[in-house]
Each structure stands twice: as C-alpha cells, then as structure tokens.
C-alpha cells in the first residue's frame, strides 16, 4: 500500500452478480456506469444491459482522501480490463450469483483470472441471490476454496443492502490486516 497510490477496492464477478448494484448501494456520489446491451448469448438470457468497461463510485475519508470503488465488466470479452483495474487496488471483492448454473466454475474462473493480484493482496467472496437459491451452501464454497488452497472468507449478501456491502468490505479489511 503506497501512500501515493489511490485507495481502491475492485468488485468483480459474473454478469448479474450485483457488482454495479453493490457499488451504487454505498457510493456517496452517483455511480458512473458504462453499460451496453449484452452480446454474449448466455448473458442475454440473464440481463438486458451489462457493464462494458467499468463502474465507478467513491467514499471520502475524514481527512478528505477518497476511497475509489471500481466494478469490472462481467462479460468475458472484457476480461482484459481486470488487471488494469486491479492495479494498485487494496483488495478484491468477488461476487458470485448463487442462482448461476455453475457457481463453483464462476468462482474458479475469477480466482484464476486474478491469481497474480491475489499473490500479494486479499479477497472476500460475496454470494448474492442467496434468498432465491440457498444451494450451494457457504460450507460448500469453503470446501471449494480449501481444495484450491485459498483462505478467503465467504459471506452471503444482498448487493442492494448497504449494510451487507459494508460488512463485505470490513471483512476484506480484516483479511488485509491478518491474512
């Protein structure tokens, strides 16, 4: 954590997992989103629009310093944005939609995509839409992480609920301090 760098957290995960929603829930400014109609077949079924470049929101600390909140695009063809956005970030929030056909594959995908970043930084996993689908369970996600050798904490959250998003970030801070 270099003082001259921006303080930023990056939200990543598949389309419809709630990245844009989570940032909007806590940003103190109107979030900037760059959206288009999705092109990938599988995405069209899930959402009418999707983020193409990134989402942006912010919070301000007591001393005036800003915390920047970035959301990566969900479509695979924009994956090249991820290492750009995570550069200099404090930590990563990976959101997984529990109603997805293959949530464990999604988790694997985003952990692998960001593996270089996660060598020296921390992540937290947020499982969304748990109210619509309670399987897989949190325990099952931990089993997947243990098999991978990843120590990251997992919580289920409602991305629309600011309290849930803040607890996710607080968990990330604790991971940054101790993991």
């Amino acid at each position: 954590m270099n003082k001259s760098e921006k303080i930023k957290f990056v939200f990543t995960g598949s389309v419809g997992a709630g990245k844009t929603t989570a940032i909007k829930a806590i940003s103190e400014v109107d979030t900037i989103s760059t959206e288009v109609k999705p092109s990938e077949e599988i995405i069209i079924k899930r959402k009418r629009t999707t983020t193409v470049a990134m989402d942006y929101g912010q919070l301000t600390l007591d001393d005036g310093e800003k915390i920047y909140l970035y959301g990566t695009p969900g479509q695979r063809r924009f994956d090249f944005m991820c290492p750009i956005l995570t550069q200099g970030a404090l930590g990563l929030v990976i959101l997984i939609d529990n109603t997805h056909e293959k949530p464990f594959e999604e988790l694997d995908y985003f952990l692998n995509l960001n593996s270089a970043f996660l060598q020296n930084h921390a992540a937290v996993i947020g499982i969304t839409h748990f109210d619509k689908c309670a399987q897989p369970t949190i325990n099952e996600y931990y089993q997947v992480l243990e098999e991978r050798g990843d120590p990251w904490p997992v919580l289920h959250i409602d991305a629309r609920n600011p309290e849930d998003v803040i607890i996710l970030l607080e968990t990330l801070l604790a991971s940054l301090e101790y993991l």
């Binding site: 600390l61 310093e65 600011p162 803040i166 970030l169 940054l176």
Partner: peptide, 17 residues
C-alpha cells in the same frame, strides 16, 4: 502507516453503517 489507513477506512465504513 498501512494500519492507520485501514483504521481510517474502517471508521469511514462504520460511519456509513
């Protein structure tokens, strides 16, 4: 310095909460 930064961020998140 890093610890203080995390505390500042934690404080800000708590205020939002």
């Amino acid at each position: 310095e890093q610890k203080q930064l995390l505390e500042k961020i934690g404080k800000r998140l708590n205020e939002t909460l």
